[in-house]
């Protein structure tokens, strides 16, 4: 009985894997260049329904539909930019993992640079001040020792 169950499980698993492979094969291009572009695009386009998955990874219906659309568009000789533009027109900037640079998003790049800059300035200032303080203190100490010796 147990063996029967195991055999059944293996059979079911096998068919599931086959099915998965079959869906992978569904989007096939004649040109290897387009194949590569398809993989690249489905990795960089974000599934609008799921929070953090690209459409290549997601099995949501919308992701499957988007994959099919990317396939259709590539078959129609759209280039990468055109496909991304097509998706952005419908799903907004959200759909592409690379955010556009605009007055709102510029801070994503500016803030880290500003932070590093501010930290550097801070370090330089404290170093300088500490240096001076230590020197005068040591001088006083040295003076004291000198005076004691005399």
């Amino acid at each position: 009985m147990n063996r029967l169950v195991t055999t059944l499980m293996i059979l079911i698993l096998g068919s599931v894997i086959n099915l998965a492979l079959a869906t992978e094969d569904k989007f096939h291009f004649d040109e290897p260049k387009k194949d590569a572009l398809f993989l690249e695009l489905t990795k960089e386009l974000r599934c609008p329904k799921c929070q953090n998955q690209n459409i290549a990874d997601s099995d949501a219906m919308i992701a499957v539909d988007l994959k099919r659309k990317v396939y259709d568009l590539l078959q129609k000789d759209y280039d990468k930019e055109q496909v991304i533009e097509y998706m952005k027109q419908r799903y907004g900037d959200f759909v592409y993992y690379q955010p556009p640079v605009n007055p709102m998003t510029i801070w994503l790049w500016l803030l880290p640079v500003l932070f590093v800059f501010a930290a550097l300035v801070g370090i330089v200032i404290t170093r300088k001040r500490q240096g001076v303080e230590m020197d005068s203190e040591q001088l006083a100490k040295a003076q004291e020792i000198l005076e004691r010796d005399e």
Binding site: P48, K49, A60, I62, R90, G92
Partner: peptide, 12 residues
């Protein structure tokens, strides 16, 4: 075929 949904930006 969910074409209009896609043009409308429907996510679900």
């Amino acid at each position: 075929k969910r074409d209009l949904s896609m043009d409308l930006g429907v996510t679900g």
